[in-house]
Design a protein around this nucleic acid. Structure first.
Length: 693
DNA sequence: AGCTTTCAACTTTTT
DNA sequence: GTTGAAAGCT
């Protein structure tokens, strides 16, 4: 960031407003994290609240990454000691904390399991007795949206509009029963159960309202109905909170986020102070003008117009391409030209690092063609938002084991662990075990040791089942009492050996290479867990630091919440390929927006009509894309698009016209312009570059 | 009929 | 690069 050392007046106003609710409308690149961290520092100054302690301030984010970043920024301001005590967490992590402490009031045991979306999917497939993954996924989707609106299955069934919804509501009822039986919650529950907890239990609500004296919410425009309810319940009558967000960057409506939360804020809190941050510290005027022009097409919730004093800068370049391959070639050529300084006159481009560049697009599949071109040109790159480490099968296997240790009644985890690796327990045995468990309404694990089970199974089967059960109990015991990175690693390696996981990988995989890469992932995973068990760790600079020791079991409890593995060292100077969604919040000196065509951006779906709301969100997506760029921006359009075997005409996106390129720039003296063009030409000739095409 | 193979198409994503 | 659908094979 190139923000100045002091706060500007608007930022200052946001930081100083401590007497009541505050909404900061933080335009792109306007320094919102600065405002949040400075406000935290201000809150901790003793002058206002006699003894406001760091642990009484909660800052809520959407991603773990954002939370980690915010804590780092806070450390720089108030020191590590105080910053580490701040409650900086995602909505979901905060929900976990509320439920672990007080979930018992709702009949939830302390060691509940958190299901990821794959677990949910397999439960739904089972509950709906279908193998159709598509159908199960549509149920999952529908149920999640209902839960985000605060509906349970009974309410959903009452409100159902058609047969599909009625069926989904009935599946949801069964799903609710399963979760209760497993003592498990899904991600949506991590918000909606705390809402229920606080809404229905006065003492618990009072406790938490007392715990948090000020709540700050990042990316407020991305909150859904439940998250808003949670915020209201947390802050209570006192309403001491700061919401930071930008209505123009709301791009997650499709997963339940609602701008109603922004609209309703001034109504629900009449004393709300609204502070727009309009000075942008990121982009040139040429870029901001285009961004403002595009977003002007949307109805406004709050008046706001970004400006910067970073100068006019390079005009936005419109690049027309013959097709997808051509687009990728031209992108590569542009990047190489900018870096080589051959595109003269672009200040700060010569000698730029690869990491100064990003290619952004609407949909993931567009990345492939760019990857190919970048590989060919020997340009290092990373694709953001690809498959997460924790989505890999081998990691999910191990996570299932971890979950089973935490909560032996977690049946999905039980099933995955008992069958991975294979240990001679087949579906017949498991089927009988399942039958028995559901008949007596106990978990699969509990059923293992029931005396009456033995009568229904062969001696060999019951033997291996109970052996598994004893092993899990024993491992759980050891995991509970093992703390510190080194001991943890020993324990985890023993465990992998016991279950024969490496062998399992090499036997199950066709290619040795693939198995080896999977095993590397496994090793990374156990290193990662061990590291989190703390103890003596080697910090940067060769100093050893004593961190808080945690048991393996404690660490295991938190893994389903965390999806990003600590970044692995190595290549950091790499170009970024990213979807527009995943690019939000990031910035690069040089950005290329690819495939800015009608149908792609704005995206048009075959079976859903383009509503005004949909179009507005697409427009915000374009706005987000434009505002990622600091110095240069190129927008590329396909003249022809591939469609099956034949090529169809590509129509430039309406957003390109809306940028009004070539309008509103500073007036240039014609003589100055001529001079500039001559110089540019001379520079090009000198560099031996062919005329730019 | 049920299986395999091939071919094309492909929203956006975090917890 | 994965998944789903359609065509072809046994």
């Amino acid at each position: 960031m190139n923000a100045p050392a002091t706060l500007n007046p608007a930022q200052m106003a946001a930081v100083q407003h401590l007497s009541g609710p505050c909404l900061v409308l933080a335009g792109a690149g306007s320094g919102k994290t600065r405002v949040i961290t400075h406000k935290i520092a201000r809150l901790l100054e003793r002058t206002h609240d006699a003894d406001l302690r760091p642990e009484q301030i909660a800052a809520i984010t959407f991603t773990n990454k954002a939370a980690a970043e915010m804590r780092e920024r806070a450390k720089a301001l108030i020191g590590a000691r105080a910053a580490n005590k701040l409650v900086i967490a995602t909505f979901h992590a905060l929900g976990v904390r509320l439920l672990r402490e007080d979930g018992s009031v709702l009949g939830l045991k302390e060691q509940f399991s958190i299901l990821d979306s794959d677990d949910v999917l397999s439960i739904l497939r089972d509950a709906g007795a279908t193998t159709d993954a598509k159908l199960a996924r549509s149920w999952q989707w529908t149920i999640s949206l209902w839960k985000n609106q605060g509906l349970n299955s009974a309410q959903a069934e009452a409100a159902a509009q058609n047969d599909d919804e009625r069926i989904a509501a009935r599946i949801m009822a069964r799903y609710e029963e399963r979760l209760a039986a497993y003592q498990a919650v899904d991600f949506d529950d991590l918000i909606s159960l705390p809402v229920k907890l606080l809404a229905e239990h006065d003492a618990v609500r009072a406790k938490w309202q007392d715990t948090f004296r000020h709540v700050l919410v990042d990316e407020y425009q991305d909150t859904n109905a439940q998250q808003y309810d949670l915020l209201k319940l947390l802050v209570g009558e006192r309403a001491m909170f700061t919401a930071v967000g930008d209505d123009d960057q709301s791009i997650y409506g499709w997963r339940g986020a609602t701008l109603d939360n922004l609209k309703r804020l001034p109504q629900d809190f009449p004393q709300l102070k609204v502070i727009p941050l309009e000075q942008n510290y990121r982009s040139t005027s040429a870029i901001l003008r285009a961004a403002n022009n595009v977003i002007a097409g949307n109805p406004k919730l709050f008046e706001k117009k970004l400006w910067s004093d970073l100068g006019e800068g390079e005009p936005i370049k419109l690049v027309e391409c013959d097709g997808e391959e051509h687009e990728a070639e031209r992108a590569v050529a542009r990047i190489q030209a900018l870096r080589g300084g051959m595109a003269s006159g672009v200040e700060g481009a010569a000698g730029a690092k690869w990491s100064d560049f990003a290619i952004l697009y609407r949909a993931n599949h567009q990345a492939r063609i760019f990857e190919k071109a970048l590989r060919k040109a020997n340009i290092p790159y990373k694709v953001s938002g690809g498959q997460s480490f924790f989505d890999k099968a081998e990691i999910k296997d191990l996570c299932a084991w971890m979950r089973l240790l935490v909560n032996q009644d977690d049946d999905p985890a039980f099933l995955r662990a008992i069958t991975t690796p294979k240990r001679g327990i087949g579906h017949t045995t498991l089927g009988k075990l399942g039958e028995f468990a559901s008949k007596w309404k106990v978990s699969l694990f509990e059923a293992l040791f029931a005396e009456s089970l033995a009568a229904q199974l062969q001696g060999k089967a019951i033997g291996s089942l109970q052996e598994f059960g004893r092993y899990v109990s024993d491992l759980e015991h050891r995991a509970r009492h093992t703390t510190g990175a080194e001991d943890a690693k020993v324990l985890l390696l023993d465990w992998l050996k016991d279950i024969g996981y490496e062998q399992h990988l090499y036997e199950g995989e066709e290619s040795e290479k693939l198995a080896a890469s999977r095993w590397t992932n496994v090793m990374d995973f156990i290193d990662w867990i061990a590291k989190r068990c703390g103890g003596e760790i080697d910090a940067t600079g060769g100093m050893t630091v004593e961190t808080q020791r945690k048991s393996v079991l404690e660490v295991a409890q938190t893994i389903s919440l965390i999806t990003s593995l600590a970044e692995r060292g190595g290549d950091t100077d790499v170009l970024t390929l990213s979807t527009l969604h995943a690019a939000k919040g990031l910035e690069w000196p040089h950005v290329i927006l690819a495939g800015v065509n009608e149908g792609l951006l704005p995206f048009k779906s075959e079976d859903e009509e383009m509503t005004a709301q949909r179009l507005e969100e697409e427009r915000r997506l374009m706005y987000v894309g434009i505002t990622r760029a600091r110095l240069t921006l190129a927008v590329s359009v396909l003249r022809r698009r591939k469609k099956g075997r034949d090529t169809v005409q590509g129509i430039p996106s309406r957003f390109i016209g809306e940028m009004k390129l070539g309008e509103g720039g500073p007036k240039e003296d014609p003589r100055e312009k001529l001079k500039r063009l001559r110089e540019e030409f001379a520079a090009k000739a000198k560099a031996g570059a062919p005329a730019a095409g």
